[in-house]
Amino acid sequence: MDQVINPLALYGACALGAIGVLLALPRRDGKNPQILGAVVASLAGGIVLLAMGLKAGGLFGIGYSPSVYFYVFALMALGASLRVITHPQPVYAALYFVLSILATAGLFLILSAEFMAFALVIVYAGAILITYLFVIMLATQAPTEDLENALTEYDTAAREPVIATASGFVLLAVLSTLMFRGVGELPKAPAVNGQALLAEMPRKIEAALLAAGTLPGGAKVTFNSDGDAKVDFAARTVEIKLADGATKTVPLPKDLSVTNTEMVGFNLLRDHPGSIEIAGVILLMAMLGAVVLSRKQVQMDEDAKERHSKLLSAELAQGAETNP
């Protein structure tokens, strides 16, 4: 497979992107040409995407093509990410992060991973980012009238921007080179027949048959010994048992298929049940840890401790009296 993008164009774009990011990063002197940086960086990203698009040939293609959405979402994601790392105000950075998440969710949709796309929006944009925003509100000084003065020194000044940017883009260039060169040679894994899962969902088949009106009253889908429905995938038919005990083969509805959510669900709960448990435990521990860490530590001197212990013991004694 020939290369997706000319290596020289890639390296040039990387260098351009690096300069752009460098310019866009916040500076101590306040005279940071952020706009210029953003433009240069976008230019670099555009060059790469253009080159890739030319290769793909879908950009100027006629008719419905998801590739347009790909470019839109990709640009959105990269641009938002750039703003996340360059915006001096944490609140705005967080909001740009939400934008980048939304763009990523769009990319997920193009990859027909609907469940992941919505989960990402709900969990990341809905929960995690709200937490971030709370903490940003909690952990920043009270804002003054002057917006510039409200920014802290550590927000306005990037640290070692040149080295960081250089190493980052060298990384990207090398990584991209390897990716673009090696991908075509990757042996394809045998595809999993997602539709085979249909046999494991007899209730869904029954509901679909009922909706299509092909299921007689009192009939049920027959099971084999594993509890699976007897589906003939080649003929797209399923065997049902009528109310009088006779079996009959009926065609499956046309639009009946396994959704992405169902596939993810089967994969998670059937193939990785232990991992699910572990993930639950991690979440529980994180919750406990967060509770313990953020608890308000009350500093008491010795006198106060004594007073409190006396009070406590008196209460206990009282409790003992009333509670024989």
Partner: peptide
């Protein structure tokens, strides 16, 4: 269509790089 795996991986790599920077 003609959007290959490499396209996504590049976007992914670029995002990762931006996060790293």
């Amino acid at each position: 269509h003609q959007i290959t795996l490499a396209h996504y991986l590049f976007i992914s790599g670029a995002m990762f790089m931006l996060g790293l920077i």
